[in-house]
């Protein structure tokens, strides 16, 4: 009888959990949960670097999905990404400079992050 009761209890809690979590397939992300990550990319003299490729790579088991679109810095060396809650390595690369990885943690309470990135020549 104890096993039967345990079984019912498990069934009951499973049902409650399923109701709380909902169905994965029907969920849609809340865009307001994203963190806006902006940045300026310069060389060691402070001159802006245009056309540097910037891409947030999800790190570990949190973060993403990230669209695999190629975003480049503008003429002022500026970029903007929006990322879901999680941890990332922002990868910045440009010919003639060493590739740089910058860790960023996006949380529900952290709505904006600004990065100042200096690339070093090879």
């Amino acid at each position: 009888m104890l096993k039967l009761k345990t079984g019912f209890a498990l069934l009951f809690f499973s049902l409650c959990f399923s109701l709380l979590v909902g169905c994965e397939g029907s969920s849609s992300p809340d865009l307001t949960d994203k963190t806006k990550v902006t940045g300026n990319v310069t060389d060691t003299t402070g001159a802006p670097i245009a056309q540097a490729l910037v891409f947030p790579e999800p790190a570990g088991e949190t973060g993403g999905p990230i669209p695999e679109i190629a975003k480049f810095t503008d003429e002022q060396g500026h970029f903007t990404w929006y990322v879901p809650v999680g941890t990332y390595n922002f990868i910045i690369q440009k010919q003639g400079f060493l590739l740089k990885r910058v860790p960023v943690t996006a949380t529900e309470s952290k709505k904006t992050v600004h990065l100042r990135i200096i690339l070093y020549r090879e």
């Binding site: 695999e68 690369q93 060493l98 590739l99």
Partner: peptide
Amino acid sequence: RKSPSATADKPSTES
């Protein structure tokens, strides 16, 4: 514009 990084041939990134 050429390859944006000297390490582009082995970019050890997640994808």
